[in-house]
Design a protein around this nucleic acid. Sequence first.
DNA 1: CATGAATGAGATTTCATTCAT
DNA 2: TATGAATGAAATCTCATTCAT
Lengths: 206, 206, 206, 206
Amino acid sequence: MPVRYGVVTPNPQYGVETPVVKRLRADARRNRARLLAVAEDIFATRGLTVSTEEIAAAAGVGIGTLFRHFPTKEALLEAVFVERLSALADEANALALAPEPGEVFVAFIRDVLLQARSKSAIADALASAGVDLQHTAADVKAELNSALERLLSNAQRAGAVRDDISIAELLAVLVGASRAVQHLGGNAELEARTITIFLDGLRPPT
Amino acid sequence: MPVRYGVVTPNPQYGVETPVVKRLRADARRNRARLLAVAEDIFATRGLTVSTEEIAAAAGVGIGTLFRHFPTKEALLEAVFVERLSALADEANALALAPEPGEVFVAFIRDVLLQARSKSAIADALASAGVDLQHTAADVKAELNSALERLLSNAQRAGAVRDDISIAELLAVLVGASRAVQHLGGNAELEARTITIFLDGLRPPT
Amino acid sequence: MPVRYGVVTPNPQYGVETPVVKRLRADARRNRARLLAVAEDIFATRGLTVSTEEIAAAAGVGIGTLFRHFPTKEALLEAVFVERLSALADEANALALAPEPGEVFVAFIRDVLLQARSKSAIADALASAGVDLQHTAADVKAELNSALERLLSNAQRAGAVRDDISIAELLAVLVGASRAVQHLGGNAELEARTITIFLDGLRPPT
Amino acid sequence: MPVRYGVVTPNPQYGVETPVVKRLRADARRNRARLLAVAEDIFATRGLTVSTEEIAAAAGVGIGTLFRHFPTKEALLEAVFVERLSALADEANALALAPEPGEVFVAFIRDVLLQARSKSAIADALASAGVDLQHTAADVKAELNSALERLLSNAQRAGAVRDDISIAELLAVLVGASRAVQHLGGNAELEARTITIFLDGLRPPT
DNA sequence: CATGAATGAGATTTCATTCAT
DNA sequence: TATGAATGAAATCTCATTCAT
């Protein structure tokens, strides 16, 4: 194999399985993960206007690294959003297996709203910023949808949730309730009473 | 009184209320009002990142005029926000006088959410942008609070709304429901069903 | 004489000597004087970058009035400068009549520098701003020149000032000494010793 | 040592002093130096109102580069000022080692004033612009002070300079004389005679 | 003549993105 | 791959000047 001067590329001699290359990829993956985590936090607490530079600094990487992983700021936003949707989908899938559909449904909603207390602001912000995620997050959205579908229909079949709504309404309520919880800024008592309002609204009307 | 020739100056005989003086201020006030209206629209439909220049252009004034009325972009945002709160307070105050407290309460909420469909994005966006309105809008907020207080307690006394909540919870639900309606993007059927969920949640539990 | 509608001009029927017209002109003159005084103060203490609006406000007049009296900011600067030169010329002329040319010369210089302590910054600033006063202030400059000429040559004839300098050098020393005094910021002792240096430098060499 | 192929990263084996790392910083340092030099020139010749954009263009860099190095225009002004003070301090320090304290002292002053002819306008302008350098340039000022202190006391001990002044007065005279030289606008004859006045003033009185 | 609202050119500053090292 | 200096378009904001009242 000829020694190549000039262009600098990973030496194929080592293959993708060598420790050297793997180490680098592990670093890269770690950087990506840290960037995502840091971005979620910062976007949630400080709004979408924080500069990419600040996120990179908080993640302990150079700005160039951020843009290598996420070619635009919007791509980073989307990745953060997909990450959250994915986590929600996982949780919903896990809960869908449990018995007691009514209790499980309520537990899921409480959990979502609990997260909204500290995180979030992201879904809102994304929406208000007019970012179009339709195509990018299609698969994650589908996964979340089917998981929620299962949770919801199970709960409806168990008589714990009103029959006249579909996931569309459920999602809207979740989005709104998250916003409401954020608005309360951590006051546990108010939060509890407010969540009760939403849950009561979801129950079958008498 | 003789017709006056010569130099034209505000005749002190008329005091500061002369049309001459008022006419100019009327122009300024008209510009201010137009700026506010345009800003509300544009912020709501296109997000908070629209440039001040664009808003000025849409209002048909120079950029300098915008900054004469609102010395910073944030000041403009605050003014828009205060304007909205004030309008809400006025509406609530008007409705508080009507009979049928339960129906009036529901009507008010439906109205707020109807507005949220097209406008808004502003309260959310403001919050997520970290703008601190606490001090600026104190009086308007107080007015809105007392108006809502009246609407709420009337409705509670009439048995149309659950007794275990105060304006804090009501406001949170309003904020959340507005967000939910926005999320639905104008789909009337989904909107109607979702609003029903919030209203049912506010009714006295059976 | 026909009654004229439309164009509004001072009614010639009253002539320029009527009290009505005179009263207005007196007001205008007072405004001009106040603008000049205020501008001198503010330029001196805060630099040439203060806005015209601030000067007008400090003088208690509208910005329009400022620009009526001085069609550009530079015109205002020139007027201030001319005012100062004129005052200096008057003082020099008055002193030129006194006996004891040596003492009078020293007194004049001390006086100039005393003024520099609080005012000035204007000559410096004007120079550094590249304002060309050559033509506008020609007559005032000439007057100051001839007055200084008289003071200087008298002092030289009396043997109190070195013979190898002309007004050009004297003016340069005055400008520099003013700057030095300003630099000392009001410390009387340092000021006194520094002024002595300049005065000693002006004496005939031994 | 083997030639390294593959990924190019700062080899920790070399520490932070490797040429790779230094090369980039050298570029940045070159840009910073060029910006400072250009800014000094332009500020001196055209006044402090020149736009940052023009300075960046004259230095051959983008406006963003200017603001990366100097986050505000005032920061750039301060840096230019500090640079000048530092250069003066270096020169004074170098001269302090020479024999013939009297001649050296005079040489230093002539040099300062020679520079004032083309450059400067900056100290004046800074002062008149109200920029407060007191805290920023503290160390440089201290260095200049001690260097001047040495020059002055040496000259005084040699009997070339009057005993009744300290650096405070010397600095004031330097500031003033610089201003005077600037005022003369390059006329060599007038300049020479004027400088003589200042130098004579600094000599021990007879 | 006085006023001050309106104007808009131009200044400063930010920030997503690129690219040489 | 990582870095961070460089870039410049675009945003915010200022201010001398004009002009309708």
